[in-house]
Design a protein around this nucleic acid. Structure first.
Length: 433
RNA sequence: UCCCGGAUAGCUCAGUCGGUAGAGCAGCUGACUGUUAAUCAGCGGGCCGUAGGUUCAAGUCCUACUCCGGGAGCCA
């Protein structure tokens, strides 16, 4: 007889059938002549019931002695039962053990400190919350790709090794590149601009590295960034694009990952409110708002993390703050023709204190102005020769933004630390496992 | 780089006024036919982060260091 191997998430489609499931022991409660074993197979968890009179003695005995995370295969009949988590359970007939796990599996179904859990990240991935959180991440990635592909964007990967700083501000990881120095990329944007002049609408999606010694729940040294870049787009166009993208992501996650959000105890009603239009505030309006709220703030400075939280608190959906003073922004941003004190840029602040998830701008397309900026910022002109070429051959208005994937996932899942939103986080003082 | 907090059993923590170490959970042994982090009984388990100092006596007080957590700046 051939085995009817099924995944746990499909059990409710097989009531009354004899099926086989394969996975790892998630929990075991032995009760004399009855034993409840919760099996985890990656798609979900299912309760398997061993009744002493229904299996042979050796199997019953072996089941009672299984350790957590032992790898097994179970064959039995699917029963719909309200008492079982997930609504379906298996009445066990037979069991095969692939490996009995060592008795000291470190992760227990109880409180652990985050330091300990991060030290055991390779095993922690098997727990419910990491499982749920990383499945939301997966859904977000798929949703983003779908969003851009549906709109005719081309995925162009930017290089990881770069010859110089993209923005000339943050600290980069330096690596040996044969006989030269190279740096790990902190942004694919400049390359995306080149690609936009070749393909019109592009996005890059890849890892990004920042060597700043930031030690907070909002920072990773290695994170994933999505960066669309659009030829002929102006600031308002990419603000519309960012708004549409975020709404699309939220919609997909609500449709495909409701169970995971429930496991994470996320307040889903907060996500259901994420619909257009998003509030749009100029920097000047944002500063007025901060003053109204009684926060000490000097006009002209950049918004700090507490300021962003205060602004975000005022709204139930992401806020777009645009037109910051150009002094606090990158050299490549175009200045506002209406008022040259400001840059044509936008930061999107997530609600509930999650802070900046997107930063974007309209780029300076004029060759002379851009050359002047590079000189003003004391950047090495030779390194930007190719970037300046883009302004010599068919330069057009163009705009784009970058979204930090993990920051977006942290907001959607409601977890309080970015490290839970990437499988193996790289942080200041943590590169294990 | 700066500011704040922490380090005691495998894990989470308690440890008073300075007097030679405690609990819950996990592990192991046993009981139990509907458990949901089962319950009950029993058994093992410790260089109190490292080094120095004060003291008759230090987990406890002092100094330095190491490691960890959070925050600021910077950013996504």
């Amino acid at each position: 007889m051939t085995m009817n191997v099924v995944s746990i998430d499909s059990l409710t489609k097989h009531p009354g059938e004899s099926v086989t499931i394969r996975g790892w022991v998630y929990h075991l409660r032995a009760k004399g002549k009855l034993a409840f074993l919760v099996l985890r197979d990656g798609s979900g968890i299912a309760q398997c019931v061993f009744v002493k009179s229904e299996v042979d003695d050796a199997t019953f005995d072996e089941a009672q002695r299984l350790s957590m995370e032992s790898a097994i295969e179970i064959t039995g009949e699917v029963r719909l039962d309200a008492r079982a988590p997930g609504g379906a359970e298996i009445g066990v007939r037979a069991m095969k053990t692939y490996q009995k796990a060592a008795a000291d599996f470190p992760i227990q179904p109880k409180e652990h400190g985050t330091g300990f859990l991060m030290e055991n990240r390779h095993l922690w991935l098997r727990s419910r919350k990491p499982w749920a959180c990383l499945r939301v991440r997966d859904a977000v990635i798929r949703s983003i790709r779908g969003f851009f592909y549906e709109r005719g964007f081309v995925n162009i990967d930017s290089p990881i090794f770069t010859p110089a700083a993209c923005e000339g501000t943050s600290t980069l990881f330096e690596v040996e590149y044969f006989d030269e120095k190279a740096y790990l990329t902190q942004s694919g944007q400049l390359y995306a601009e080149a690609a936009a002049m070749a393909f019109g609408k592009v996005f890059t999606f890849g890892p990004t590295f920042r060597a700043e010694k930031s030690k907070t729940r909002r920072h990773l040294t290695e994170f994933w960034m999505i960066e669309p870049e659009v030829a002929f787009a102006e600031l308002n166009d990419i603000m519309d694009l960012a708004e549409a993208m975020l709404c699309h992501i939220v919609k997909s996650v609500l449709a495909e990952r409701r169970e995971e959000l429930t496991i994470l105890e996320r307040d889903i009603t907060k996500l259901e409110k994420i619909v257009p239009p998003f509030p749009r505030l100029s920097y000047t309006d944002a500063v007025d708002l901060l003053k109204q709220k009684g926060l000490p703030f000097e006009y002209g400075g950049d918004l700090g993390a507490p300021d962003e939280t205060a602004i975000g608190e005022n709204y139930d959906r992401p806020v777009m703050v645009h037109r910051y003073p150009h002094e606090v922004k990158a050299f490549y941003m175009k200045r506002d023709p209406q008022d040259s004190r400001f840059a044509l840029c936008v930061d999107v602040l997530a609600p509930e204190g999650y802070g900046e998830i997107i930063g974007g701008s309209q780029r300076e397309e004029n060759l002379d102005i851009l050359e002047g900026r590079i000189a003003d910022h004391k950047l090495p002109r030779e390194a930007f020769a190719w970037y300046l070429d883009l302004r010599r051959f068919g330069s057009v208005p163009h705009s784009g933004f970058g979204m930090g994937l993990e920051r977006c996932v942290a907001w959607l899942t409601g977890v309080d630390h970015l490290r839970e939103c990437i499988p193996f986080p790289r942080m200041l003082y943590r590169i294990y496992p």
